[in-house]
């Protein structure tokens, strides 16, 4: 750890940052939660979801990719930014086919938890209702693209953590989808249930088979505490 500590200001509070850290990493370390979906601490940042957008010296930027530097003035938990974030979450809900009552990720899903945290009662934008392809060919893992939010965590985890290239994006814009490196689907790839990628999906899209509904309602990750509480807890106990 370098001793040339920098100071950034998030919502008026001074936060220490080390050279090489992004704004989001510095905030996490200080117990300040910036909402995010595609970011994962084990992976290089993707900058896909834009949930972590903050205002850096008055200009919007994704905090997961923006390097911290001394004296940056950052707005994070403001009504304006949270309203943008709520709209992004709403768009993700209406673009996919997210049926929470019949999804085994419900209660542990980061998209759902983000909606709860941001106080979204229900999406009211028009639903797209596009059919999306399900891939249950693999013996241990399935892909339900209805629930994909294109965060790219699976593809980054497969490359960085597993040293494979099982997942990738194909298509552009609204036609963009997660694809696998196998002509006959996931069973045709070198995907293994032990891969990091198998358990990194924030929603119910990429799931390990035969694991659903093991944890009863009331004991799931986000039943009682909002997403981000673990990070904010650090600040409370410091």
């Amino acid at each position: 750890m370098s001793d040339e500590t920098m100071t950034i200001i998030i919502d008026g509070v001074e936060v220490a940052a080390q050279p090489g850290q992004t704004i989001l990493e510095a905030a996490d370390q200080a117990g300040v939660y910036i909402p995010r979906l595609c970011y994962h601490p084990d992976l290089p940042p993707g900058g896909h979801c834009r949930l972590c957008t903050v205002k850096v010296n008055g200009r919007p930027a994704s905090s997961c990719t923006f390097p911290a530097s001394d004296g940056l003035v950052i707005e994070n938990d403001t009504e304006e930014l949270n309203a943008f974030r709520r709209t992004i979450v709403e768009m993700l809900f209406v673009e996919g086919n997210h049926h929470c009552p019949s999804c085994e990720a419900s209660g542990d899903c980061e998209l759902q938890a983000m909606a709860y945290r941001l106080g979204l009662l229900t999406p009211t934008l028009p639903y797209l209702r596009q059919p999306r392809q399900l891939d249950a060919s693999h013996k241990d893992v399935y892909i339900d693209r209805d629930r994909c939010i294109l965060c790219g965590r699976c593809s980054r985890a497969s490359k960085v953590e597993d040293g494979k290239t099982v997942f990738g994006f194909e298509g552009r814009g609204i036609h963009k989808r997660i694809a696998v490196d196998g002509a006959k689907g996931l069973s045709d790839t070198d995907m293994s249930v032990a891969d990091e990628a198998a358990r990194i999906c924030p929603t119910g899209c990429l799931r390990v088979k035969r694991e659903g509904y093991r944890v009863p309602v009331g004991q799931r990750t986000y039943d009682h505490t909002p997403i981000g509480s673990d990070i904010e807890h650090k600040k409370a106990t410091r």
Binding site: N97, Y127, R129, P131
Partner: peptide
């Protein structure tokens, strides 16, 4: 509007992509 079906179409709306 009360409950997921009234809010989103809910489980019956699973037919919407067919």
């Amino acid at each position: 509007a009360v409950g997921q079906c009234a809010l989103t179409g809910g489980v019956p709306a699973m037919r919407n992509t067919v």
